[in-house]
């Protein structure tokens, strides 16, 4: 048997040339990730964090400038041909041929994977499993978004891969199709014992699907572990405050930092978050302190830590802000 991990990547560095920028864009900056066998593992991060680049390297599409990667016990850089037989890939962009039928797409994919005469029966099996039997003979360009995405996943499963890569599997899907896709992904790991590496920029998706996640920020993994563990590492409750208009966040911040039992005071715009062992009982003291400091709060909420809080703690930015930042700058997927 190959090594116990399904995927082992170390020190991945990848720089893309960009016009008008001599240095280029450093998409990966020493990324390490290890995915145990049979797990659903989530790479979570905002757009542009380096998730897709990681997938491209692990699936042999792109070569890293530095670093090593092993997938299913095979060296990705030395034997890409063998890796390609062991993996299934569902990329962000569909990849299905819109001018062919769903069945033709599947049969061709099966043949390229050496299924030969079995390609047709395997195609029918997958069509049935993904509820596409009725649309099997229709051209893919007539499919709805959800149907296309199901076909994409079916294409990645044709040859029963050991490791399945899902790059943003639910982006652009309506809530109903997303729920169906979540169910399917859960089933893949449960019944088929497959290792699934999925990338997502939805916190909720990572939280729900993945047994383990790695949070990717600016080309590096900044935290890794089961979602509950990551959240649990942030002891206590989170108190979120929004300041009234035209108050000074710095004054509010120093007022809170002086309070007993309040930790990790973080300011993002006019929103402040802090940590407390017992959030509810800390609220009166917090409000009073802010009032005294001349920076009254407009609203206050107390919550259990979410992955968003984990992200904030690790990167100093709110998850939603990171998305905005990237949307403004160059967005290389």
């Amino acid at each position: 048997m190959p090594s116990s991990a399904a995927i082992e990547a170390q020190g991945l560095v990848k720089t893309y040339a960009v016009r008008g920028d001599k240095e280029g864009v450093r998409a990966l900056d020493g990324l390490d990730v290890t995915v145990p066998r049979g797990a659903v593992f989530g790479l979570l991060g905002p757009n542009g964090a380096g998730k897709s680049t990681t997938i491209k390297i692990l699936t042999t599409l792109a070569r890293p400038d530095e670093g090593t990667a092993i997938v299913d016990g095979i060296d990705v850089l030395r034997r890409p041909d063998r890796v390609r037989r062991a993996i299934g890939v569902v990329a962000q962009r569909s990849g299905a041929d819109p001018g062919a039928t769903g069945r033709e797409n599947l049969v061709l994919q099966g043949r390229l994977h050496g299924l030969g005469a079995n390609a047709a029966s395997r195609a029918d099996e997958l069509l049935a499993r993904f509820g596409l039997t009725g649309a099997a003979g229709r051209l893919v360009k007539t499919y709805s978004g959800g149907m296309q995405r199901r076909l994409d996943v079916a294409l990645g499963l044709v040859h029963r891969p050991e490791v399945l890569f899902l790059d943003e599997p639910t982006t652009g899907l309506d809530p109903e199709s997303r729920a169906a896709m979540w169910e399917e992904i859960t089933r893949l790991a449960g019944e088929d014992g497959m290792t699934v590496l999925l990338t997502t920029h939805y916190l909720e998706e990572a939280d729900r699907l993945a047994g383990r996640i790695a949070i990717v920020d600016r080309g590096r993994v900044v935290a890794e572990g089961p979602p509950d563990e990551l959240k649990g590492a942030l002891h206590g409750d989170v108190v979120h405050l929004e300041l009234a208009a035209e108050t000074d966040p710095a004054a509010a911040r120093s007022a809170l930092q002086d309070l007993q039992g309040i930790r990790n005071v973080l300011v993002a715009g006019d929103a402040i978050s802090a940590r407390s062992d017992d959030g509810a009982s800390a609220v009166p003291a917090i409000l009073a302190a802010l009032q005294t400091a001349g920076a009254p709060a407009a609203s206050v909420t107390v919550a259990r830590p979410s992955l968003d809080d984990v992200y904030l703690r690790l990167t100093g930015r709110r998850y939603s802000e990171s998305e905005d930042l990237v949307a403004e700058g160059a967005n290389r997927s």
Binding site: T60, L61, R84, R85, V89, G95, D97, L112, H113
Partner: peptide, 9 residues
């Protein structure tokens, strides 16, 4: 589509 073929055998 090209990428799909390039990551297949």
């Amino acid at each position: 589509t090209l990428n799909r073929f390039l990551v297949s055998p």
